[in-house]
Design a binder for these strands. Structure first.
Lengths: 146, 146
DNA sequence: CTGCTTGCAAAGTGTTTGCAGGCCC
DNA sequence: GGGCCTGCAAACACTTTGCAAGCAG
């Protein structure tokens, strides 16, 4: 993911909301853009600290919150672990599954839960937000090791 | 759910594991058996306190853990909220979806994710544990209120 | 300059653990 | 009466918040 592009988009999106693109927020975006995966808040904090020492942990949380509200970042809840963060997809967000043994998060196709979503709407009037929580199970590697 | 029956089963299941059916554990089972829904640990603690005052919050957590290990209780992780507990189904556990706005948990058919589970196995070698996390979305009532 | 943001520290949830005494079986 | 379990208190992980100073635009 191109950091420059992400930051340019962020500047616009934030300004539209009367907010600002600051050092800590820039660093958070850079860390997320540089990472292939899904980072915990602590991992984002570590990454930010490497790039911009002195940024406080609380600012990382507040930055993630602001960037989420602006539609630039998404988070996924993973079982009993904390949330994981990643840049929001341009269009539709992909889905996630996580291993309850080793914690790894794998990406799934955006349409993997479409049938379930339709079923929930029809039978329960419930609107599914499929990308907001990770499905839980055991990954390939852990299955081998058991 | 019949409390007497549950407690009798629990006594056996625990003894098989070299563990004991104690006052606090009995109270936890009674509270879960008396509740139709899915309780947070705090709600279980409140219920236990009403039946058996003096039981410590930590004992409720430890009881829930022990009863889970013995296969008598199940828990579901609900988004950023804490876990919810309920008596384990006799056979296959039902699934859950929770409202990210009001927190209500609704039960789903045990086979609601079968197609997804098959897909995950085939494409990622991932074994889904469908009852362990609640799907997330907005419930009917909250949709009306938006 | 205006006021959104930050750093700091402290408080808040939800949950776990070490320890000495207590109770189940 | 042996050893699993409990109550207590403190620690824990993760996250949020009040406040005064700081920086973006």
């Amino acid at each position: 993911m191109d950091v420059e592009l992400v930051i340019a988009q962020a500047s616009l999106a934030l300004r539209e909301r009367g907010e600002r693109l600051t050092g800590p927020r820039r660093a958070v975006l850079a860390v997320l853009a540089a990472s292939p995966g899904h980072l915990s808040a602590e991992q984002v904090f570590d990454g930010v600290s490497a790039v911009a020492p002195g940024v406080h942990r609380a600012s990382v949380y507040r930055s993630l919150e602001a960037l989420t509200a602006a539609g630039l970042v998404s988070h996924v809840h993973v079982g009993h672990q904390g949330a994981r963060y990643h840049l929001a997809d341009a269009g539709r967000n992909h889905l996630h599954a996580s291993c309850q043994r080793c914690g790894v998060v794998i990406d799934l196709a955006p349409d993997a839960l479409d049938a379930v979503a339709a079923d929930l709407t029809a039978n329960h009037g419930f609107r599914l937000d499929p990308s907001h929580v990770a499905l839980s199970g055991i990954c390939r590697e852990c299955l081998k090791a058991m």
